[in-house]
Simulated scan of single mutants.
Amino acid sequence: MSKERAKRGTLPPAQEQIEKFEKVVEEGNYYGAQQLYKSISARYVAAQRYTEALDILQSGACIQLKHGQVTCGAELAALFVDTLVKARCPYDDATLVRVRTIYKQFPKIPVPQQLGDDDDVQRLSETLGTAKTCVEGCSSFLKAAIKWSAEFGAPRGGAPEIHVMLANYMYFESPEVDMVRVAQHFVRGNNPKEFASTLVHFMGKCYPGEDDVAIARAILMYLALGNLRDANALMDEIKKQVEAKQLEFPKSDLMQFINFLLETMLRDAFPLFNMLRSNFKSTLDREPSFHELLDEIAEKFYGVRCRNPLQGMGMFGEIFKMMGGD
């Protein structure tokens, strides 16, 4: 028997371990099962039997999460990603399916909409705490998976599919939604249609005046990444869904600016770009980050450096730059 076969023979097939550990979980001994998943998977990793270690950790994460053991499940999910790195697993469809399988097991916690007595308030407090734990655990797992994917074959910003998973979970499961963070992941994803659906949903629940800011921010974020195609696709899809749902699309100076901007980006018209910024300055001042995003857009599309000493010098500075001044 070769040394490799001898080494492999020291551990049973992973499926035997999985079936044994699942029984421990089903008996309600979650902590005991957790220790088994961690210690035994580590032995498979040490033996360089990475696929079996991943099988054990994936199974453990899913069954713990299925039983509502979010802390345990999230820990095993994190170890799953850590093992992907140790095994130098490439980013591919098969591994993406594994990540998605674990992601889908993270609980969705319904938050009570109406409060009555003190017991209801107590339950709400407990529910919000649980929801926060779920979001933190799922976010940590998916962020680690994004980092792994970027290192092993995905685009530089990480797997677009995982960014969409994270954006969706953050939006629909966070007790307090942060639309900036949600948008940051959606624009690095590959599904502007799904992003549009989320923004339309947000329009129906946000405070007055937040809807146009959320849409504008999303468009500007896409453009700051140099992604004019998805910026246009997002705007078209939002308008289509709003019409289908018989809702009213925001009518504001900010939306007018965004429509003009998207038209401007189709042509090499930096002076027009600057004129738009100047004419809509008071509107853009509603959200300070818009000016930073527009600086990045100017750099991406027109080669104008952000925050260089010429900014703020008006026409003379622009003329100097167009003449080739650095």
Rank of each mutant, 00 (worst) to 15 (best):
residue 79 L to H: 10
residue 117 D to K: 11
residue 64 Q to A: 13
residue 66 K to A: 07
residue 95 T to I: 08
residue 130 T to S: 07
residue 101 T to H: 10
residue 90 P to F: 02
residue 128 L to F: 08
residue 86 K to D: 02
residue 109 I to C: 00
residue 83 T to Y: 01
residue 131 A to N: 04
residue 94 A to V: 01
residue 94 A to L: 02
residue 71 T to S: 11
residue 71 T to H: 14
residue 121 V to G: 05
residue 96 L to A: 01
residue 98 R to V: 01
residue 131 A to H: 08
residue 113 Q to K: 13
residue 80 F to L: 10
residue 138 C to A: 15
residue 129 G to A: 08
residue 98 R to A: 04
residue 96 L to V: 00
residue 113 Q to R: 14
residue 138 C to N: 11
residue 127 T to Q: 05
residue 102 I to H: 05
residue 117 D to T: 09
residue 90 P to M: 01
residue 124 L to M: 15
residue 84 L to R: 07
residue 125 S to G: 04
residue 67 H to I: 00
residue 138 C to K: 06
residue 76 L to M: 12
residue 104 K to Q: 12
residue 109 I to R: 04
residue 96 L to G: 00
residue 90 P to K: 11
residue 130 T to K: 12
residue 96 L to D: 02
residue 123 R to S: 11
residue 129 G to M: 06
residue 123 R to F: 10
residue 116 G to V: 09
residue 80 F to K: 09
residue 94 A to F: 03
residue 129 G to W: 01
residue 82 D to G: 11
residue 75 E to P: 01
residue 134 C to P: 06
residue 127 T to K: 03
residue 120 D to K: 11
residue 118 D to R: 13
residue 113 Q to M: 13
residue 91 Y to R: 03
residue 125 S to C: 10
residue 118 D to V: 14
residue 74 A to T: 15
residue 129 G to D: 09
residue 137 G to H: 04
residue 73 G to D: 05
residue 134 C to F: 02
residue 81 V to P: 00
residue 130 T to R: 15
residue 121 V to R: 15
residue 127 T to M: 04
residue 98 R to D: 07
residue 93 D to F: 03
residue 127 T to Y: 04
residue 104 K to Y: 13
residue 138 C to L: 10
residue 93 D to V: 00
residue 105 Q to N: 13
residue 131 A to W: 06
residue 118 D to N: 07
residue 87 A to S: 06
residue 96 L to F: 03
residue 128 L to C: 08
residue 126 E to D: 15
